[in-house]
């Protein structure tokens, strides 16, 4: 077994572009669920509308990348309003149902044959981020210990982690403010907050918009890093990986989703490469290399279950504030 290879790949992925994307998605979810108690099971839709907003504006309509980014953010805001207006007056579970359905609707609309001229069908939209890479200040890639990034990847990853830090700063400032206090109050008991003269509906809407916009930054990173948007990248698994990352790191904690996302991708790749290597060398004989893909998720799922049993508040979480009751 090549231990060096296993660690190199795991660490590179744990700090790589996937971790950035899921960290941003999970930071948004944390505003929704961790702080406000909103069950958003459609975070993928926020990433999708941002990525498609960018892609369509640049590739289909021919505007610049910067216009595309603005369109993407506006699309996320509009999506939050569409989701929130009918559901935020209802009980929390309705939002969960509507968001999961909406995310699927968004995915099916952009991959539809009828709208192929706009969204590119199942092939998606490609090559719209040259303007971004033209700004790359790095002259070469990075090969620092276990970390290896190509020149372009390095630029995306650095910009991505800066976005993560900026998002964390916004969450940190917002949640220590009286605004964040209202959100936490709503998470605990919205009737009580209402009885104190706060417009609960408006605050829930604001939380949905803020979390959606933070999550949509992950959509930009996803789209730009691969120079493509493809509908099937924005399925329900994206949403639930982001949930897993948030819960793993600890909800209602500023850095919880970031740590969670790093660990999630580190673990996923670590399990995958370790199994692949073990099969290749012959330590494991009862599965073959093609089955590793499934088994890595079994093991990851088991790991998450154990975490929920022994540390239901996540790694950074405070049990007194937010924990999942698995009993």
């Amino acid at each position: 077994m090549d231990i060096g290879l296993i660690l190199n790949q795991s660490i590179t992925q744990g700090l790589g572009v996937q971790a950035v994307i899921f960290a941003l998605a999970a930071i948004g979810l944390n505003v929704h669920f961790g702080y406000t108690g909103l069950l958003n099971f459609g975070q993928a839709a926020f990433l999708a509308v941002a990525a498609y907003g960018l892609g369509v504006t640049v590739a289909t309509l021919g505007f610049s990348l910067w216009v595309g980014l603005i369109v993407g953010v506006l699309a996320a805001v509009v999506l939050a309003l569409i989701l929130g207006i009918p559901t935020l007056r209802l009980r929390a579970d309705y939002l969960a149902i509507v968001t999961i359905a909406t995310a699927e609707i968004v995915r099916l609309v952009v991959r539809s044959v009828t709208l192929r001229d706009i969204f590119g069908g199942s092939d998606g939209i490609n090559r719209f981020a040259d303007e971004f890479y033209a700004l790359n200040p790095f002259s070469s890639g990075l090969a620092l210990g276990p970390l290896t990034f190509s020149r372009n990847d390095l630029f995306v990853v650095v910009v991505g982690w800066l976005l993560v830090l900026l998002s964390c700063l916004i969450v940190f400032l917002a949640m220590r403010s009286p605004w964040g206090r209202v959100l936490k109050g709503i998470r605990e008991d919205e009737e009580a907050v209402r009885s104190l003269g706060k417009n609960v509906y408006s605050y829930k809407m604001q939380a949905l918009v803020v979390g959606g916009v933070l999550g949509c930054l992950g959509g930009f990173v996803f789209a730009i890093s691969s120079q493509s948007v493809q509908p099937d990248n924005y399925g329900t698994d994206l949403t639930f990986f982001a949930w897993a990352a948030m819960i793993l790191g600890g909800a209602a904690r500023v850095f919880g989703p970031v740590l969670g996302s790093i660990l999630f991708w580190f673990l996923l790749v670590f399990i995958n490469v370790t199994l692949t290597e073990a099969v290749r060398v012959g330590y494991i004989t009862f599965i073959d290399g093609t089955q590793v893909g499934q088994i890595q998720f079994w093991i990851l799922g088991l790991t998450l279950m154990l975490l929920m049993i022994f540390r239901p508040q996540g790694i950074l979480g405070d049990k007194r504030e937010l924990a999942f009751d698995v009993k």
């Binding site: 917002a174 403010s177 009286p178 964040g180 604001q206």
Partner: peptide, 11 residues
């Protein structure tokens, strides 16, 4: 005043 999102960001 701090119950507005944007103003809340500036302590």
């Amino acid at each position: 005043k701090g119950e507005n999102f944007f103003r809340g960001l500036i302590p």
